[in-house]
Design a binder for these strands. Structure first.
Length: 370
RNA sequence: GGGUCGAUUGCAGAGUGGUCAAAUGCUCGAGACUGUAAAUCUCGCGGUUUAUACCUUCGUAGGUUCGAAUCCUACUCGGCCCA
């Protein structure tokens, strides 16, 4: 805090794994946080973790990540920058820099690596919860997984940063950077963690939970997914993902707590603000109108994807429109009343469609026959 | 290298010769109720032109058997212990 207040221009960064072709809302929080620093005149680095991404962060203990080649990484990160620009400024006088950590990590020799690793102990590593968990369950822990925090930590050294931004699940990895920076450059590096977007039960909103918001998504989808979030995230969502003034957020959180408003209304505000941030105000309005119309009033949306099926029977249409993954599934869904044609629930499996018919599956899936 | 245990449908995890497309929980999908919230409830969750049917699936490849996820052999991969 002292250094922050000193007026010194700090160099800070946040890393992003290029594992998907789009940033998601969780990344948006980080980008948003960085943008606040940028506005205060600090130097901001948007780091693409093309090297660390290859290792795969064990923090989410899912299966090994897909390895990407150079070209894919560049492709992905191009989208990243574009999406991040919804919050961050990559143009102006204090523009954010984009860097790739393979730039320096590729060059680290085995000898260097050993040197770097000597700053950490095995005990530090295995003390982490998810490793303890795996030890208890007799699941494998691979040696290279220990290197993830090391590699991430080395980024701090290579860029000689003062500050790193990340989710509070990244605390460990970021502190590794702090230790290294101290040991190698003899400099204090600070870390700022933000809360993760999660509801009261601690369920995260993310990829693995199936309700992730990708910034590449269409306005109406972003809006819709946010509306399906649980109520518990409204307050924190406003706080982390929007650029609304702090006072207003506080006030909203307060009224929410006292049950003075229908949480839905505030959630609509949240959905609107995020959509606006990503796609602009006009698109956000359209998305909101669309939502009110199709979901709240259960009307058929204005814009529907069209499909020219190879055969015009309902089964083929459902499969080809990717509404269901197989004909068996289509049969089940129809049997349970999940398919409507022109607003009429159907039960007949052999219905033949004609051009202009509108098929609906579930609440949100629409397709128009061409 | 030796010993030992293991690999099952998205995940976890039962099943150890026919009753197995394979328990159960979670996830997921549809429906009811709603605010596309949560909670709750119902149904479903390998595939196939209707199915008391067939096909594919229980790490891989062979074998035994009327019949194998289950038994045998080899291989691959992994955990643990010993070295």
């Amino acid at each position: 805090k002292k250094e922050l207040m000193s007026g010194k221009r700090l160099r800070l960064y946040c890393g992003f794994d290029p594992s998907a072709d789009s940033l998601h809302i969780g990344n948006a929080i980080q980008v948003n946080k960085m943008s606040q620093f940028q506005e205060l005149g600090h130097e901001v680095i948007f780091l693409v973790g093309d090297f660390t991404g290859m290792i795969g962060d064990p923090t989410d203990k899912a299966a090994a990540r897909k390895k990407l080649n150079r070209k894919e990484v560049l492709e992905n990160s191009k989208h990243y920058q574009e999406q991040a620009s919804a919050y961050l400024d990559f143009e102006g006088s204090n523009k954010a820099l984009v860097k790739y950590n393979s730039e320096w990590s590729d060059k680290v020799s085995f000898k260097d690596l050993i040197e770097i690793c000597s700053n950490f102990t095995v005990q530090q590593m295995i003390q982490r919860d998810m490793f303890q968990e795996r030890i208890k369950k007799e699941k494998p822990i691979y040696l290279h997984e220990f290197l993830y925090p090391v590699a991430q930590g080395y980024d701090s050294v290579a860029m000689d940063v003062d500050l790193e931004v990340g989710g509070n699940d990244q605390m460990f990895n970021m502190l590794a950077g702090r230790d290294l920076q101290k040991a190698i450059n003899n400099k204090e590096k600070y870390v700022i963690t933000h809360k993760l977007i999660a509801d009261d039960e601690g369920n995260k909103m993310g990829k693995s939970e199936g309700n992730a918001v990708f910034l590449s998504a269409k306005p109406k989808d972003i809006y819709g997914i946010i509306m399906s979030w649980s109520d518990g995230v409204i307050g924190i969502g406003l706080e982390l993902c929007t650029k609304l003034p702090w006072d207003e957020i506080k006030k909203d959180q307060e009224t929410l707590k006292q049950n003075k408003v229908n949480p839905r209304d505030l959630k609509m505000k949240l959905a609107f603000e995020i959509t606006k941030q990503v796609h602009g105000e006009n698109k956000a309005k359209e998305a909101q109108d669309n939502f009110i119309k199709t979901i709240q009033r259960k009307e058929i949306p204005d814009e529907i994807n069209e499909l020219k099926p190879s055969v015009y029977d309902i089964m083929t249409v459902l499969v080809e429109a990717k509404a269901v993954s197989s004909k068996s599934e289509g049969r089940r869904v129809i049997a349970q009343g999940g398919v409507k044609i022109n607003k009429e629930k159907i039960s007949d499996l052999d219905i033949v469609l004609k051009a202009g018919d509108i098929v609906q599956k579930g609440k949100v899936f629409f397709v128009k026959i061409k």
